[in-house]
Design a protein around this nucleic acid. Structure first.
Lengths: 370, 370
DNA sequence: GCCTGGTACTGTATCGGTACAGAACGCGAC
DNA sequence: GTCGCGTTCTGTACCGATACAGTACCAGGC
């Protein structure tokens, strides 16, 4: 009687049928539970004859295989890794660059049998995935470093890899050379004779508008690095850029900064604009066209990322290329390596990878107008 | 001595420090382990004074919170749900429609605290995520119904929701009215006077080329339904379409079928083409243009999905609209509902939702040429 | 004084596995 | 004969938590 009550707890029964576990099968075949476990997880530990009998019995009972939760607890691994995305997880899918990055990770991870779990920084509810979901490790992708979700992951001492983030001593990281890329973009405009140069940025947390001190603006790692890169080149040429930023959340991210930069008398208007991304560059070109300006005759535009959009645009966009797929692969590899290392005792230095960026000159830039 | 050996197994120690568990904290504070568990998971079960002391002790010991794996085993829930994607998981991110769907799911799930785990059907390795990763439920999105991964999920008796798939008696499903949408698309061309009509399809597993018996072609649920919809209208008008399909894996999915349909003498060439997707329609328009055909004067083109691409195109694409975000929300809701129901005993009938589709007439269709 | 009911905390029995050290057995070698 | 060894299977001790049924204690009503 009492036994029956106990069996009713939780999910011990499904639709009246007692739950099938290793023990059920062991009893049926007449072997120990351990042998059944071995039949599934370490085939070479028993005779293939017995193994077949066990598997047959399991099949008959509708047993799927060792329960993932039980196994996770006993083994200490779950077979899933997380990727922590910025607050705007919608963006992670809509944005071609982020989407391709995720796709590359997923593709690289697939053969290892690791599944990818999407984690968000949203601290809205009391259920925090970064704290509560079983995970073997995690990628932190372009997150606000003060995010509580990152803190949870770190406190769990999960193997982590930072991507598109400031690197941190103990944590392996994968970044692209944002700064060199941005420097090349600005230098390209300078070399074409441009002297009035605008910067079109976007901000996640700040306000849209013109920016006085671009170095002081709160921004993510990527924004900061690219800004530094542009200023490297512009400072060296003694050029003070006009900096405008729009809201990152805007669908047409480029429109607002473009208007701020271009909607002014010809003598004050920048003749060249470097943009934080190809999407922003797209918006800038749209606004320029609407104002009756020709690209690149009246205004040159440089993007960043070399997303598919860049080559689709008309004119094709001059931009800074990054190999997003390679970044995804590198991140996945770094993570699997970090996980392996955490299982052994070895604790070698965390590697910080910096992938190159290259300027791709297309049709959206040309000599400065006279 | 022996005790120490045992402590060295697995991850009982990290960097020499003994692993902190509820018991460690309990010993330190001088209460039972259960009370510590309550301090974290059921605050109202103890005095706030004691709770604070426990939390402080936990903090001091660097305890993060109840171990997710242990909790998963004891509670029977993990806080993560899976989404099983087609083999081409790269496609899931690259394809704007699929990406938006995933984004909508993730966004809808976020407030519930459930994380989304990406599962692939790749049966390559012996580690099968669909079988081995702890999950509370799963979405099956546009998968090959014979996929082994789907079979694993079903055998695990996880709460499932099928999306863009043939619906199955016991399993809740979310679909769009592909057939009605396709019917409307074909009818639209018929109403415009078109009599020579082509169908541009793509295939995952078959071969590129002209298709003799469109009803017999192996295809996914979505392909089948759309084909049936087109034929509904065409049959009624006594029109026999020319059906061409390209490879789904091609970047320019539309090129191949477009060439097959359009690269023929004017008298045999279709004057109207319905396409399996907007991406294919894009390819068709490109090819038409390259062959010197005007859209819609010489050939009308209708897409499917109403992805962002459709309005970006020139001319803007006439297409069948589906509300992908709504589909994602519906799927997420259906899944959380299925999970809740599976926890109770109630087993109400599985709901099959069918979301509407509507024809959006833009500039890529016009009267049949004389 | 005794019973009722509520709050605060504890004890015990799981959850479903895995790891490792045996144990039993058969077989060839010395 | 028995020693050594490999193969095959078993026993026990966990992994880290939660559920539920107590138990202890206190206030209040009759």
């Amino acid at each position: 009687m009492r036994r029956i009550e106990l069996f009713c707890l939780k999910q011990t029964t499904i639709g009246g049928m007692a739950r099938v576990t290793l023990q059920t099968i062991a009893d049926m075949v007449g072997v120990s539970r351990m042998t059944v476990s071995n039949a599934f997880s370490r085939p070479n530990q028993l005779s293939s004859d017995l193994r077949d009998r066990i598997l047959a019995a399991a099949d008959e009972l509708g047993y799927v295989g060792p329960d993932p939760s039980g196994r996770a607890l006993a083994r200490g691994t779950t077979g899933a890794v997380g990727v922590l995305l910025t607050d705007s997880l919608r963006d992670a899918f809509t944005n071609e660059v982020a989407a391709e990055f995720l796709g590359a990770i997923a593709a690289e991870l697939a053969p290892t049998g690791l599944a990818l779990t999407l984690l968000t920084s949203s601290a809205a509810t009391d259920a925090v995935p970064a704290r509560d979901v079983p995970l073997d490790g995690a990628l932190v992708y372009s997150c606000d470093e003060t995010s509580t979700a990152v803190a949870w992951l770190e406190r769990r001492r999960l193997p982590l890899v930072f991507v598109d983030q400031d690197s941190k001593p103990g944590v392996p990281s994968v970044n692209i050379d944002d700064r060199a890329g941005a420097r090349a973009a600005a230098q390209h405009l300078i070399d074409l004779g441009h002297r009035r140069i605008g910067i079109a940025d976007s901000t996640v947390s700040g306000e849209a508008g013109l920016v006085d001190d671009p170095r002081a603006a709160v921004a993510s790692h990527v924004h900061r690095q690219r800004m530094l890169g542009w200023l490297d080149a512009l400072d060296a040429a003694h050029i003070t850029p006009v900096v405008a930023q729009g809201l990152h959340s805007d669908v047409d991210k480029g429109e607002e900064p473009a208007r701020l930069l271009l909607d002014r008398p010809a003598g004050e208007r920048p003749t060249g604009i470097v943009c934080i991304s190809d999407v922003v560059a797209y918006g800038v070109v749209q606004v320029a066209r609407r104002l009756g300006l020709r690209v690149p005759d009246d205004v040159s535009v440089v993007g960043f990322d070399d997303s598919p959009l860049a080559s689709r645009m008309e004119p094709a966009l001059t931009t800074v290329h990054q190999d997003v797929a390679a970044k995804g692969r590198a991140a996945a590899t770094a993570l699997t390596r970090a996980i392996e290392q955490s299982q052994g005792d070895a604790k070698p230095r965390a590697r910080h990878e910096l992938l190159p960026t290259t300027l791709i000159v297309r049709a959206s830039t040309g000599p400065a107008p006279l």
